[in-house]
């Protein structure tokens, strides 16, 4: 294990900087405090990785008007548009840990959530049959993005030293994630926080990286 991490040092340099520690829970009196200078992506990552309320308030302030406008356009009903703002932003909060940087920007991600929510709300309001939902119509690519347990066990049977030579062939982003999880033995949450990426991105990079490694090992054998 030691050998392995040494040989990987050139990759790990950039990632060992610890982020400044932030309180996980912000007092409630801060409810309307915002962080105007952060990008949408940074805010979403903060919401997903550490339930950052101030970051969420900022997203709320930035997107509620836009979601309302979308709701008015699609439903032509003020009450429904109001409901949409609340329901869509609730979903942004709930799904933030699943946000994946590799699949697009935060605006696009929030847009998709709002549009899908609006589609389902409108169908419900019109009492249309529930046999199909927005998530069936606009599926997220690779939705079942979790690393399968069977795959993980399959990988463990391969010698680490054997795998070492393949690491260099991985894209750096995937390598960094695999290193955090398998070499430094960090939890997904810790690794996401260290690398400053959303948990969802970490999981998809881990899955892609492991798949690639498995293919490389398989090809060689």
């Amino acid at each position: 294990m030691n050998n392995l991490s040494l040989s990987l040092d050139r990759f790990s340099m950039g990632f060992m900087v610890l982020p400044e520690s932030r309180a996980a829970h912000t007092p409630k009196s801060d409810a309307l405090v915002t962080r105007e200078t952060d990008s949408d992506e940074d805010l979403l990552i903060a919401v997903g990785n550490r339930q950052d309320r101030i970051a969420f308030n900022t997203l709320f302030a930035r997107f509620s008007n836009r979601i309302f406008a979308m709701g008015m356009k699609l439903t032509r009903n003020e009450q429904l548009a109001h409901d949409l703002v609340q329901e869509a932003l609730l979903m942004v909060w709930q799904k933030a840990p699943l946000y994946d940087l590799d699949r697009g920007n935060a605006q696009g991600w929030i847009f998709t959530i709002a549009r899908n929510r609006c589609f389902d709300m409108l169908r419900k309001a019109r009492r249309q049959p529930a046999c199909v939902s927005a998530d069936d119509i606009w599926p997220l690519e690779g939705e079942s993005g979790e690393l399968s347990t069977s795959g993980e066990t399959g990988f463990q049977s391969v010698e680490l030293s054997q795998v070492e030579q393949y690491y260099g062939q991985l894209p750096e982003a995937q390598f960094a994630v695999i290193e955090q999880i398998y070499v430094f033995d960090r939890t997904h949450e810790e690794a996401a926080e260290l690398l400053k990426i959303p948990l969802g991105t970490l999981k998809s990079r881990l899955r892609l990286g492991m798949e690639k490694l498995r293919t490389l090992v398989g090809v060689e054998q």
Partner: peptide, 18 residues
């Protein structure tokens, strides 16, 4: 109140497999 109500909800840590 809305913000409080939302941020008290649990978050999804993994995709619910359909």
């Amino acid at each position: 109140g809305i913000l409080d109500a939302i941020t008290q909800q649990p978050q999804e840590r993994a995709n619910t497999p359909s």
